[in-house]
Each structure stands twice: as C-alpha cells, then as structure tokens.
C-alpha cells in the first residue's frame, strides 16, 4: 500500500536570469510502514520536497498522492491544505519546536482536539504515546523543563497524535547527541512497523542510513533510489 506517490514533479524558484530549477520530472513512491531517508547536498531541494509533500509549497506541475487521495494534479485538488496536514501528516523538525507555553500533554493533544477529538479521548491517546516514548511522567511539565532528547520524543509524540499516514521529518536528530540520535532513529523505525506509518526523513548523517528501509537522493533535479549498504557514503 502506497503512502506517498509523486509523479513527474516540476518545481522552480525565481524567474528570468535568476531562475532556479529544483525538480524536473521527479517521481518516487513511499509505501506504508517504510522509513525512507532523503539525502542530498544542501540546497538540492530536500526541504522543498518535504514542503510540497506537506502541501505547503505548490509545485509547478506533476501529480502527488497522499495515501489513496490525489492531492495535486497540476493544481491543488484539496480546498484546505492545512486541514489535510493536521489530519494526515505529522511533522518532526531539527529542533523539537514544541509550543513553549503548553505543557507536554497539551502540545500532544492540541491537534487532535482541534480535529474534533474529545479532550478526554485526546488526553488518553496522548498519554499512551507519552508512555510509548517513556516520558509519561513529564506530561504536565513545560518543554523548558525537559532535556533535548525528551523534548524531541515529545515532538515525535505530537507528530503521531493525529494518527497520521505520513510523517515528514526534517533532520530530526540534528540537535541530538550520538546516543539520542540512534535512540530516535530506532524509535522512528519502530513506529513504521508498530503504527504502519510512512516516514520520510531528511538527514545528513550517513550512519543512520542502515536503519532506513530505503534511501532516496536528489540528483540532477530528479529523485534517485540508492541501495542501503552498511558502508555507504553520502555526498
């Protein structure tokens, strides 16, 4: 079952002499339950691709499916991209970016409550996630009182709170030390099998690639699949 399908995607920025073509006919798929790494040199368009998958930036042309739903076919087919994001997509960032004035529990329950889930049910689900990430005892703490690793786990819990089909993770371990980096990536991998979500993870850390099911790279404005080998080297 495919979670993401991208076909013949084009995207450019600027115009005239300053035009920058980022994608020209990019195509790829991500299956449910897959952890896919997206690697490329800085400026190649990794974030742009995540933003297009997240319905934040509009491509020039092409098609995008999220799950069974075709969301883009040379123009957006959805009326409210933000509603789609909060229902189908989870985001994880380099830093945790939890809302500092909300407790950990409130951060995790925010999206489900806005999606219409009753508060009690949202809290129960959030507590399950926090237990899964072993930070249930921090539920009522403010993010400022937690360590970087704990906050990142809370951010992952937030990304999962709305039961997304897809998680878009932009260098989720960049701010973590080695041990926590490995912990988080193992956790993401476990999520793909336990929750059957598809995860696209942008990373510069080649040591994490062996944890991933597949590695996609941006080369010549297209998406290329690279084999995962323990000794692979990323440009």
């Amino acid at each position: 079952m495919q979670a993401i399908q991208v076909h013949n995607l084009y995207k450019h920025f600027g115009k005239g002499d300053n035009i920058v073509r980022v994608f020209e006919g990019a195509s790829f798929t991500v299956q449910k339950g897959e952890l896919v790494a997206l690697v490329a040199p800085s400026g190649a368009g990794k974030t742009t691709l995540l933003m297009m998958l997240g319905c934040v930036i509009e491509p020039d042309s092409g098609q995008i499916w999220l799950g069974e739903e075709k969301v883009y076919d040379n123009h957006w087919l959805i009326k409210d991209p933000r509603a789609l994001r909060r229902k189908k997509i989870g985001f994880i960032f380099q830093a945790h970016y939890l809302i500092p004035f909300l407790t950990i529990l409130e951060n995790v329950t925010m999206l489900p409550i806005i999606n219409g889930v009753p508060k009690k049910e949202a809290s129960k689900r959030a507590m399950e996630l926090l237990e899964y990430f072993e930070i249930a005892d921090k539920a009522n703490e403010m993010p400022a009182h937690l360590s970087g690793g704990q906050n990142q786990r809370a951010a992952i819990a937030r990304a999962l709170a709305n039961d997304p089909q897809i998680i878009l993770a932009d260098e989720p371990t960049a701010a973590l030390d080695r041990k926590r980096t490995i912990d988080v990536v193992k956790m993401l991998k476990k999520l793909t099998t336990d929750k059957n979500v598809a995860i696209v993870m942008v990373t510069h850390d080649e040591s994490l690639l062996p944890f991933c099911d597949r590695v996609l790279s941006i080369e010549n404005k297209k998406i290329i699949e690279k084999p995962v080998t323990p000794d692979m080297h990323i440009i």
């Binding site: 933000r82 985001f91 809302i99």
Partner: peptide, 16 residues
C-alpha cells in the same frame, strides 16, 4: 513568530 509558523505548518487554522 517561530511557534506561530510551526502551528501553521502542522495545520493549526489561522482562526485559532
């Protein structure tokens, strides 16, 4: 503003 952009990105509606 950073939190606001995050909120917009993860899908919190402008009205909220």
């Amino acid at each position: 503003i950073k939190e606001i952009t995050i909120m917009k990105l993860i899908g919190i509606p402008d009205s909220k």
